[in-house]
């Protein structure tokens, strides 16, 4: 479910806004979905992003923005219900399934998503990607974490620091 690209019609009752990625691709989405971004919310409340204007996002490229909007569109209805306290178990399970699949992606994409979620201040997405990275780290030794995250092999100096750390905080390595 990719975000619709550069449409210009307001054919639904829902208000639409246009977002422009760093590589000048235009995305038209419902204002409610884009408003999951705290950064965009104020602009949108002020009436920005409508018509032919569009809101430029110089820090987010089109590939990442389309992924971000996929998340926002999926989560907008639940967010509109105020965190959906009366959502059915089925709805919640569906969102959870979507989330799990959503972050099942290449690390480089995950990184771009982290930065985008941070810049756009999309709380749920920030949490989702942070949790994904945390899950990649959990239960692993520092060396394993380094490998998982693709750090280069430690220099002798770094290795010595890691060993000293392990000695100092023995309890954390049990």
């Amino acid at each position: 479910m990719a975000a619709p690209e550069s449409g210009d019609g307001n054919n639904g009752a829902a208000r639409m806004v246009t977002l422009i990625s760093s590589d000048n691709t235009r995305f038209e989405v419902e204002a409610a979905a884009a408003s999951l971004s705290q950064t965009l919310q104020l602009t949108i409340l002020d009436g920005g992003g409508g018509g032919g204007d569009g809101i430029p996002l110089p820090n987010v490229d089109s590939a990442t923005l389309s992924k971000v909007l996929e998340y926002c569109i999926k989560h907008a209805p639940a967010a509109a219900n105020g965190g959906a306290p009366n959502a059915t178990a089925v709805d919640r399970a569906e969102l959870e399934r979507f989330d799990n699949e959503f972050v099942n992606i290449d690390q480089s994409v995950l990184y771009s998503l982290i930065m985008a979620a941070h810049n756009l201040e999309i709380e749920g997405l920030q949490s989702l990607v942070a949790k994904k990275v945390a899950d990649m780290i959990k239960g692993k030794s520092p060396m394993e974490i380094r490998r998982t995250l693709g750090f280069p092999d430690p220099t002798p100096e770094e290795q010595a620091e890691m060993n000293a750390h392990m000695l100092e905080y023995g309890w954390a390595y049990e």
Binding site: S22, D23, P58, N59, D61, S62, A63, T64, Q107, S108, V109, L110, Y111, S112, L149, G150, F151, P152
Partner: peptide, 12 residues
């Protein structure tokens, strides 16, 4: 702009 796709060592 930063290139959209970073390789893994960049991420690290």
């Amino acid at each position: 702009c930063v290139s959209p796709i970073l390789n893994v060592s960049d991420w690290a």
